[in-house]
Design a protein around this nucleic acid. Structure first.
Lengths: 335, 335
DNA sequence: TTGAAAGCGCTAACAA
DNA sequence: TTGTTAGCGCTTTCAA
């Protein structure tokens, strides 16, 4: 931190009290125009910048919010982070970004750090393992919003997409196109997104009175490696004419596998994925995908958080709400 | 911020002074074991969490650092951000991430916010337009490290890659492979990275006593759109048997263009790019690329910053240093 | 080994 | 329209 250039020095130099300097800094109305100018001139010439740490302590507000996502490296979460920041900055809030890595311990560590720093609110994609601490945070007045997934049984603002319906429609589209033996690389079913997409797949078969061939279903962990490995397994198993993969990273791995095995898309195998990474339109043929409104997920989460912060400030109670956004199935050349 | 659960309350409950509580919180050695346990028990049972805002004010240290990059959405900068955070967190520092968008005004705004919040140091990829304020920050004891690019004439810790040499080698490789009419989509030459890669290209011709065909050189702005548009121009112009693109985003645009125009790689045109995005190995044929050690760039920057912070704390002077990291030319199927 | 007390830099209630 | 002053929650001397 810097030397001792503080409000007292400015007051001294401008020949006014610290209260007046504070009023100028904060655009308080009842200051004589000439006084204001004098103070501003001193501020300008000294390069004085208010000490936000002291201000935050006094105001009991930090104008900052914490964001815990699994990984900025993921194109999915980085867009969310960007959206959150865009909305926050527009409201003069700053954001502290934390890579929780889907690790409950790391998550808890970050939650504590954010609490220590008295952020005004938290946005996170929860692992689901820190319910107790989250309840505590909310009880001490730190509002929380979930993104991407929720914690079953935990009442909290939340922004998600229609995973189940989207997955059902995706499989439905494959069946409509004549594919009959659809391999499915699912996410972990103990995660809400994984589970919902898994159930959507089954829904579709159920509604058509068709039987899921369990040999064609593999449960991955949403990582590139698992996508690649499971695609390998399904291909070796044979009997599959299409492959449906439940998220971005696994889809990348699965695509690598298809490529390495010289499998032609869509002649040998239809290919459809959940999430729409950059590369779907760069490869040939272009890959069909279920696109999530990623930016909107993030901006909506931040808006919900602001609503909570304001409600809290104005002493009103808050009724948790869940926003479900729509996905889009984009048909390209791979099915 | 939370209700009034502070160090006084803990002291009261534990029947000790606030000083003792503080000693326990901070693992100060000379506290009787029994006292320590009693205090810890109260802390545990009340969920007390130290108020970092107050602590920071008192200590004049925030244990946080600011990171200003152009955009988390860029795979390049997001890796840097992740690396910085990884190293910071290991040292119990938190990071505040800002998307400067390569906009000098936004950059200045963020620099001010970071200063207001009294971060202990700043890492940024500078636009180069805020020298004055950067000097001011350094003068008040906030260390700064540049990543990816420097500000000519500004002495400051900096981590970069050997842009010029890498670019020279890349072009050299193309010439060695027999390409004679190399189209070049350069970055803006008023940015250090753009300029160095541009000069590397010319170096190579100069060294071989060959003439650059100026009609084959286009200056873009590092954006996808410019890459696409300029590739379009070069193709229309004709007479080119290879295309060398100076960064990730422009390469993506250029690739889209080649694809849309049905140009076969490498038969119709060799293709080589600076930066190595995910998709280079997903498309067919796989794209050759100059790979930067992105993660190392970020982690090195954070290490340099810590060195400065420690030197500053221990009152030692600091001699700015520039670290130049090596790139790797990865030959794949596109040349 | 512990406590008393000053003070970090600011805001805001109150008084003038 | 301006000034005085208490106090936000903590750390850290100094004294005991």
């Amino acid at each position: 931190m810097s030397g001792r250039l503080n409000i007292d020095v400015i007051a001294e130099l401008a020949g006014v009290s610290t209260a007046t300097v504070s009023r100028v800094i904060n655009d308080y109305p009842f200051v004589r125009e000439e006084t204001r100018r004098r103070v501003q001139e001193v501020i300008r010439s000294t390069n004085y910048q208010v000490n936000a740490v002291a201000r935050n302590l006094r105001r009991k507000k930090t104008h900052s919010i914490g964001v815990i996502i699994s990984n900025v490296l993921s194109p999915f979460y980085s867009v969310i982070a960007k959206a959150v920041e865009d909305v926050a900055i527009r409201n003069r809030f700053s954001t502290v970004l934390c890579n929780g890595g889907d690790d409950p311990d790391k998550e808890l560590g970050y939650l504590k750090v954010l609490h220590e720093n008295r952020v005004d609110g938290i946005i996170l994609s929860p692992t689901g393992k820190n319910e107790r601490y989250l309840r505590f945070l909310i009880s001490v007045g730190i509002p929380v919003v979930f993104v991407d997934r929720n914690v079953p049984g935990f009442e909290c603002d939340c922004v998600m997409v229609n995973n189940r319906e989207a997955s059902r429609n995706a499989v439905s589209c494959l069946l409509d196109r004549g594919y009959r033996n659809i391999g499915f690389i699912s996410g972990p079913v103990d995660r809400v997104t994984g589970f919902e997409r898994y159930e959507g797949y089954r829904d579709c078969y159920r509604r058509r009175n068709m039987q899921v061939d369990e040999a064609h279903v593999r449960i991955g962990d949403f990582s590139l490696e698992s996508g690649k490995r499971l695609a390998e397994e399904l291909i070796e198993g044979g009997g599959i004419d299409a492959l449906y993969v439940a998220n971005y990273d696994m889809a990348t791995g699965a695509y690598q596998c298809l490529k390495e095995n010289g499998i032609r898309i869509p002649e040998d195998m239809g290919f459809l994925i959940f999430d729409d990474p950059d590369w779907t339109t760069l490869v040939t043929p272009e890959v069909s995908a279920v696109k999530q409104p990623v930016y909107t997920i993030g901006s909506t989460a931040m808006e919900l958080l602001f609503r909570q912060i304001n409600e809290f400030n104005s002493g009103n109670g808050h009724k948790p709400q869940t926003v479900i956004l729509e996905t889009t199935l984009i048909r390209r050349e791979s099915i």
